[in-house]
Design a protein around this nucleic acid. Structure first.
Length: 437
RNA sequence: GGGCGCGUAGCUCAAUGGUAGAGCAUCGGCCUUUUAAGCCGUUGGUUCGGGGUUCGAGCCCCCGCGCGCUCACCA
């Protein structure tokens, strides 16, 4: 255990003092009657006819302003913040002093009383009784001071550091309410994807995470060891190989939502463990999958955001089918001026890039596939803001995908993009066993 | 893994190689409608760790640790 900070030591002393006074800092039960949002809503409707609203609320102290014989404080629960008003008239001087001296930001308390509206207009609980529910030792992270150009200082009462936010998710959640909303949206999203696929006769399965041989993608794995078998095992980098085996077993439509693990770079777009959805559909081709995909995403947007139109950063994205479809060769030609069909070798294509795009800097050792990738990510991808399917990929960057019947260098594959991000990747699967070797 | 940058009080940050500071928080006092409350006072430091240069190192040099950005890899 790390050493306590001076602030934590003060709080530990307060716990001692509470116990000395016969106050249990961690009582077993709470008696909440309303969330803060319910209390405010109920008061709003009762205010017109002067109906009294008595409630008991529970939450964490987020702010307090002691002013001698009265104290204002805010507590926050899962539904939001609410102000408390404490006065010696109802509580006695001893109780108000107790609140001010022994309770701190972050402590969980419950408070009972009557709802009213302050002079400043804020719906507030006039506290007649309160009780400590759990004394916090480590303070909630908060307060970031930013000095403005004019020299004034603005205080943000929220956790800012990206490092802390990621490492201490609970603290981020406790302090930043919008993050809680992200969690709810994520749960809705996954629920809606399940509902959609179930509705379309796809069967949800779970395949092995611990695998003796990894595959299904080009990525480095995490390695672990099975002691009893004395055998190295890998955390899956993809579900692909196991899901395909289920197709072999005549489960014609299967899907899995779960974690994959890739031992690679970390950034705001890439995490070593990430959630992925894969589905496989026997006897269908990539065009049918394209249609199903845009319907699925639109369905999810409707369920999560209430509309197929969604704000993302500065963009307003409309996921309503049909999405724009751009053939890769045409897209590259339109955005970079290079027709990859006219340059069938790496050397040839590299020469064309150097001639037509003197400012571009591709790796000269690249294969033809890598050069095409370069053109896509440099010129084409940034233009794919509204939901778009990019389709018909060059064979040399698309393992396991089936070639087009009349063009062996191009495969039946597509990727979906929105706001410049790749959303998904799909293809007509190679099913010639000899070709696969 | 490569390149660049950062690490000073609980937090956010100052400090030409010359006595380590400010605001907020903490702690104490005043204050019966505040909401970034206000006013007065107080406490708080192995300057990330180790070594070196120097009369003198938070600052310069070397090694290490941690973190950020970025490139490569990838979704």
């Amino acid at each position: 255990m790390a050493e306590y900070t001076s602030l934590e030591k003060v709080r530990l002393q307060k716990i001692e003092e509470l116990r000395a006074q016969g106050v249990e800092p961690y009582p077993t039960r709470a008696e909440r009657t309303h969330t803060s949002a319910q209390a405010i809503a109920e008061f709003d409707s009762a205010e017109k006819d002067n109906r009294e609203v008595k409630v008991t609320l529970a939450g964490r102290i987020r702010a307090s302003r002691a002013m001698g014989k009265i104290t204002f404080a805010h507590i926050e629960d899962g539904s939001g913040k609410i102000q408390l008003f404490l006065r010696i008239n109802e509580l006695t001087k001893e109780r108000v002093d107790f609140f001010n001296r022994l309770l701190d930001h972050g402590d969980f308390i419950q408070a009972s009383g009557v709802m009213f509206r302050t002079k400043a207009g804020e719906v507030t609980l006039h506290v007649h009784d309160f009780k400590l529910l759990a004394k916090a030792v480590t303070p909630l992270p908060a307060d970031k001071d930013v000095t403005q150009e004019d020299g004034s200082v603005i205080r943000y009462a929220a956790l800012e550091s990206p490092e802390l936010r990621a490492r201490q998710r609970y603290a981020d959640l406790a302090v930043n309410p919008d993050v809680r909303e992200n969690f709810r949206k994520r749960a809705k999203l996954i629920k809606s994807l399940r509902a959609f696929l179930d509705e379309h006769d796809f069967l949800e399965v779970e395949t092995p995470i611990l695998q003796p041989i990894y595959g299904g993608a080009a990525a480095r794995p995490f390695t672990t060891h099975h002691n009893e078998l004395d055998q190295d095992m890998f955390l899956r980098i993809s579900f692909e190989l196991y899901l395909k085996r289920l197709l072999v077993g005549n489960l014609e439509r299967v899907y899995e939502i779960g974690r994959d693990f890739r031992n690679e770079g970390v950034s705001f777009k890439h995490n070593p463990e990430f959630t992925q959805l894969e589905f496989y559909w026997a006897y269908a081709d990539y065009l049918q999958v394209m249609e199903l995909t845009e319907q699925m995403v639109a369905y999810a947007a409707e369920k999560v955001a209430g509309s197929t139109t969604v704000k993302f950063g500065e963009h307003e994205l409309d996921f309503k089918p049909p999405w724009k479809r751009v053939e890769m060769r045409v897209g590259i030609l339109e955005t970079s001026g290079i027709d990859i069909a006219e340059h069938t070798t790496a050397a040839d294509l590299l020469q064309a890039i150097k001639t037509k795009l003197p400012h571009a800097a591709p790796d000269p050792k690249s294969t033809r596939g890598k050069l095409i990738d370069f053109l896509v990510s440099e010129f084409l991808e940034p233009t794919l803001i509204q939901p778009t399917f990019l389709y018909n990929y060059p064979r040399d960057i698309s393992p396991l995908a089936k070639s087009m019947p009349d063009d062996p260098l191009t495969v039946e594959r597509f990727e979906g993009y929105a706001a410049g991000f790749e959303l998904c990747n799909a293809f007509t699967e190679l099913n010639d066993p000899l070709d696969q070797e």
